[in-house]
Each structure stands twice: as C-alpha cells, then as structure tokens.
C-alpha cells in the first residue's frame, strides 16, 4: 500500500502566506514607516543666532580710537571655520512636516570675535534657525530630525525625535 502526500493545498497555503506577508507588511509599514524614517535622520539642534558681547576698536572723526563693547548675532568659531553653516527650512507635504538643512554663506566681521564666537554681519537673519549640533556630516538639502532644545542632543530622546 503506497501513501501519497496530498499536495493540492500547497500552492493555496503559499498564496495565503504570501498574502498575509504582503498585507501584514503593509500594515506594519503604515504604522511604523514614519518612526523608522525619523529614526534614520541625522539629529540636529537648531536655534536662532544668539547675541554675544564683542569688544572692538573704532576710529573717531578726530583720528582718535575708542574701545567699545556691543552685542552682535554670533556663531561658534568651529562651525564657521568648518564652512558647515546650515539653517533649517521647513516643508509641509501631505500633512507631514519635514525639516531640511540649507547651507548658507555668511559674512563675518573678523574684528568682532572672542575665544568661541564670530560676529555675523550678513547671510542669516535673526529669525533663521541655525543648526548648532550635528552639522558636521550634513550636506545641503539633507532632511534632518530637529531636536527642540540643544540639551536634548546629548541624551537623544526618542520621543522628542518623533515629534513632527
């Protein structure tokens, strides 16, 4: 007496499995694609340029020079020297808000500087969000995950990352 394996339901089983994988996969991606997307983005912090106090010398009309101290918008020296100055641009498409890094050319006043900062005279406005951390590996147009406050960059809070 020979026993034959019943193979008639095999294709149906594989098709069911395939369907389950497809729809299950789509369901999984629908639920988590945005989280995965944001988790893979470079994390940056951005703030409007802060004003720093700079001491500088001016020449008066009578030829005498005078030392003055004033507040000017400033950026960190490391950032300016590396040439990696980015501001944040916002894009809203299909109800999703995305943040992009836009590289900018700035003009600095070499006389107005201190140990850590250069005074900025042109290239960014006081309302621009300048990327202060995480700019090292960025390229112009890269999408970024914007952490709201600078202090969060060091401890990388996932919850903050996923706020869109």
């Amino acid at each position: 007496m020979t026993h034959k394996k019943d193979t008639t339901n095999k294709p149906l089983f594989f098709l069911l499995l395939l369907s389950l994988l497809f729809y299950g996969g789509m369901l999984f991606l629908s639920a988590f694609a945005d989280d995965i997307h944001y988790a893979r983005l470079p994390r940056v912090t951005a703030e409007t340029p802060k004003k720093q106090s700079f001491s500088y010398t001016i020449t008066l009309n009578n030829g005498a020079s005078s030392s003055q101290t004033n507040l000017f918008p400033a950026l960190p020296k490391d950032m300016v020297d590396s040439g990696q100055v980015f501001i944040v641009r916002t894009s809203v498409q299909d109800d999703f808000t995305s943040y992009y890094a836009q590289k900018v050319s700035i003009v600095i006043d070499t006389e107005k500087k201190n140990d850590d900062y250069y005074a900025i005279t042109d290239g960014i406005s006081s309302r621009d969000l300048v990327i202060l951390t995480g700019y090292e590996a960025l390229s112009d147009g890269d999408e970024v995950a914007l952490l709201k406050e600078k202090k969060e960059a060091s401890k990388v809070q996932t919850d903050t990352l996923f706020q869109k």
Partner: peptide, 9 residues
C-alpha cells in the same frame, strides 16, 4: 517609497 512617502499608505 516605504520610508519617505507616507501618503502612499
């Protein structure tokens, strides 16, 4: 498609 285009889902 899967990780950048959420309107697709």
């Amino acid at each position: 498609l899967f990780f950048d285009c959420f309107s697709f889902y």
